[in-house]
Nucleic acid binder design. Sequence first.
DNA 1: CACCTGACTGTCA
DNA 2: ATGACAGCCAGGT
Length: 97
Amino acid sequence: MNPLVREQILTIIASIPEGRVTSYGRIAKMTDGATARMVARALRDLPSGHELPWFRVVTSSRKLADHSGADEQRRRLIDEGIAFDVRGRISVERFWP
DNA sequence: CACCTGACTGTCA
DNA sequence: ATGACAGCCAGGT
């Protein structure tokens, strides 16, 4: 994918405040032409040891995306004060921007 | 080149 | 509310 767009995606994720989340689609719209799937791909391809708060990216339906790191993601979000309702959804007030 | 596969989404039954 | 589905499109086979 276009390296500039990739950089935009990572920069946006890096700026998500602690205790807040945002969706793949929202991030995509903030970039110059990326789609939600491209955001997902960019996250999947992250090297280990990076500093990005990847766990603050969730789906538009306010749930965690279906992937192998979902368990860790849930823990890390709970650790920073984000609550999940009985159906595994996050309150809209937690969304950023 | 054709076809398949997703860390997704908006729409609709 | 909930699930199915058609768009989506870069990468891999």
